[in-house]
């Protein structure tokens, strides 16, 4: 009598992990044509300590928004030098959505950002310096005010100073007053600088009462 193989029904979830979840298997899936497979690979690679390099490489040509978000979150979780460099590289992207996503993620990494923020705030590209100030916006770090004062004292670009000034009007204390007054004197013909400097000074004075 011939054996009849018992038929089993198996429901395959589209998002199910289909290959071994070792590092090499995940690297293969990271380049899979299906974005769901790539997204799962990214999520699992976030648990592997040596995954930053492959994730950064994938990020450079990933065009699916959900996979890209997963990579940025994975890099934030890994938080090593390669991961941080990958996140910082996004600030130079010509794609506003990617830049903004990277800024939002870097805001949540105060201690990883600390060693690199001086370099970003003095970058040759004024747009990168503006994004560095944006990172400080909700960075929970004790030096934020000091970094912002440094920017408005030294940066030659009006938009970098304006962005820092906007933030100082929210987080600044009396320590920032001399630098704000000097900035106003440095850009007397810029109505926006004068407006936001006056606003910042008013808010700081009101806050100190």
């Amino acid at each position: 009598m011939a054996f009849i193989k018992k038929q089993t029904s198996q429901v395959i979830n589209e998002d199910e992990r289909k290959t071994p979840r070792d590092f090499n298997g995940l690297c293969v899936e990271l380049n899979h044509e299906d974005s769901k497979v790539r997204r799962w690979a990214v999520r699992d690679l976030a648990e592997q300590l040596n995954a930053s390099s492959v994730l950064v490489t994938r990020l450079e040509h990933e065009d699916d928004a959900s996979v890209r978000t997963a990579i940025l979150n994975a890099l934030a979780k890994l938080g090593d030098t390669i991961a941080m460099n990958g996140l910082v590289a996004c600030l130079r992207s010509e794609e506003a959505a990617l830049r903004n996503e990277a800024i939002e993620i870097l805001k949540e990494l105060p201690y990883e950002v600390e060693p690199i923020i001086d370099g970003l705030l003095t970058d040759a590209d004024s747009d990168v310096r503006i994004f560095a100030v944006n990172i400080l916006e909700s960075l929970r770090h004790q030096h934020v005010e000091q970094w912002l004062i440094g920017v408005i004292e030294k940066d030659p670009h009006v938009n970098v100073c304006s962005t820092a000034l906007d933030l100082l009007s929210e987080v600044g204390s009396e320590l920032a007053i001399p630098a704000i007054e000097k900035l106003k004197a440095r850009f007397p013909d810029e109505p926006y600088v004068c407006f936001s400097a006056d606003l910042a000074l008013k808010r700081i004075e009101e806050g100190s009462r």
């Binding site: 506003a96 830049r99 903004n100 800024i103 939002e104 944006n134």
Partner: peptide, 10 residues
């Protein structure tokens, strides 16, 4: 242009 959640281009 640069805003969180949805930028100006978007």
């Amino acid at each position: 242009v640069n805003m969180p959640k949805l930028d100006g281009y978007g």
